[in-house]
């Protein structure tokens, strides 16, 4: 509840600080527009026509359902990865043996390209929701696991000694000692994983599903419809930016207030 109140209170000032970000995005638009001048409408339509297409898609009612399907798949895969990765990573971080044993396994997972997992997932789950959800999970899990592992391992042993001398019970060790420290490793990992989840889910849908943004992209590609393609890309990236900067970043600022005051 406190977190929600702080989030709402900090929002206006935070949004005001977003002008810099908006101006850099506008520079990107300008570059895009000038490339359109070089290559023409078929290769790269103008930002204006792209957003007009996006508006039409929303007006026609086809955008939100597809985005909702994609978001559901990406977020369920991400939620599974966050839950499993954070818990297992922290558990592994507490034990030296588990940390040493899990590291090479995680490196294997990180090194396997998502497209390879996608092929396996298509064989295992067919064209159901399981394919994109599993691919997102397996692409995000190692990133979060490593964040949690690193965070837990880097906790100062002097503070651990202090905690055991002051007889902190297990739940206090978790909430007052480990989590505040691990959070500063975990949260960037969550944000990275969020980006990965959106990228991977669109790729998985493009190859394996009949609905969602990925499938819509496959259709627009087959019609050589570049502006619809770009409209879908803008929609996906726009939602990612909104979630990261409007939701996650303010939460991070609030939780890590002790660090910023230094």
């Amino acid at each position: 509840m406190n977190l929600l109140r702080a989030w709402l209170k900090g929002l206006p000032a935070y949004l005001w600080s977003g002008w810099g970000a908006i101006s850099s995005l506008l520079l990107l638009m300008a570059g895009w527009e000038s490339l359109n001048g070089l290559y023409g409408d078929l290769i790269l339509p103008t930002p204006g026509s792209t957003f007009a297409t996006l508006y039409q898609l929303i007006e026609a009612g086809s955008a939100w359902p597809e985005l909702a399907v994609t978001a559901r798949r990406a977020l369920s895969g991400l939620a599974l990865a966050i839950a499993a990765g954070s818990v297992l990573g922290m558990t592994a971080g507490v034990s030296m043996t588990a940390a040493m044993m899990s590291r090479p396994l995680v490196t294997v997972l990180l090194g396997t390209p998502p497209i390879a997992w996608l092929v396996l997932a298509m064989l295992w789950f067919g064209s159901s929701d399981g394919t994109p959800v599993f691919t997102v999970f397996i692409a995000c899990f190692p990133v979060i696991f490593m964040g949690a592992l690193q965070g837990t391992r880097t906790l100062d042993h002097q503070l651990k000694d202090m905690a055991s001398v002051f007889r902190l019970p297990a739940h206090m060790k978790l909430f007052d000692l480990y989590l505040p420290h691990v959070f500063s490793y975990l949260f960037p990992a969550w944000i990275t994983a969020l980006g990965t989840s959106w990228k991977v889910v669109v790729m998985a849908e493009l190859l394996a599903s009949s609905d969602g943004v990925g499938a819509a992209l496959a259709v627009s590609r087959s019609h050589l419809d570049t502006s619809t393609t770009l409209a879908w890309i803008c929609a996906v990236v726009g939602i990612l930016l909104a979630v990261e900067y409007l939701l996650l970043e303010p939460i991070k600022r609030e939780v890590e207030r002790w660090r910023q005051l230094g």
């Binding site: 002097q158 420290h181 002790w258 660090r259």
Partner: peptide, 14 residues
Amino acid sequence: PAVMFQQPRLLPWK
């Protein structure tokens, strides 16, 4: 028993 260490060892997030 209580201990006062050589370094303060205060939790930085509290």
